[in-house]
Simulated assay, not measured.
Amino acid sequence: MIEIQPTELAAIDGAVILDVREEYEFEQLHVPSARSIPISQFIERFDEVPADETLYVICAVGGRSAQVSQYLEQRGYDAVNVAGGTIAWAEAGLPTVSGAQE
């Protein structure tokens, strides 16, 4: 499984970031461009996952996103796990927002 550091991800313009934390976690704090698809709803919302782009999967610390990244890789998707998750992103001083997905 491929991993990327939050600071490396922040430097990629237009990166497709999938946040697999639960909705209440996402609303508290998330990466500005992230799309929320909670791990608990991932299978039923799988049709929302872009098939033709590199997907950067993030959660709180990297465990749930690693599971989803592996699942995506097994299905032929180009998936990258964000090491340290949203916590590492925030600790690196990178921008975050709160509230529901727009």
Rank of each mutant, 00 (worst) to 15 (best):
M1K: 09
M1H: 08
I2C: 00
E3N: 13
E3Y: 12
I4D: 02
Q5R: 14
T7L: 07
T7H: 10
E8R: 04
E8M: 01
L9E: 03
A10H: 14
I12E: 13
D13S: 12
G14V: 10
A15K: 11
A15Q: 09
I17V: 15
L18S: 07
D19E: 08
D19F: 08
D19H: 07
E22Y: 05
E23Q: 13
E25F: 03
E25Y: 03
E25R: 04
E25G: 00
F26C: 10
F26I: 03
E27H: 10
L29R: 12
V31K: 04
V31W: 01
S33T: 15
A34C: 09
A34K: 10
A34Y: 05
R35C: 05
I37S: 06
I37A: 08
P38H: 06
I39Q: 14
R45N: 15
F46W: 11
V49E: 13
A51R: 15
D52N: 15
E53H: 14
E53F: 02
Y56H: 13
V57K: 05
V57H: 13
I58N: 02
A60W: 00
V61R: 14
G62S: 09
R64F: 10
A66G: 12
Q70L: 09
E73R: 09
E73G: 01
Y77I: 03
Y77Q: 01
D78W: 01
A79D: 02
A79F: 06
V80A: 08
V80R: 12
N81R: 06
V82H: 06
T86A: 06
E91C: 01
A92W: 02
G93D: 13
S98E: 07
G99Y: 04
Q101G: 07
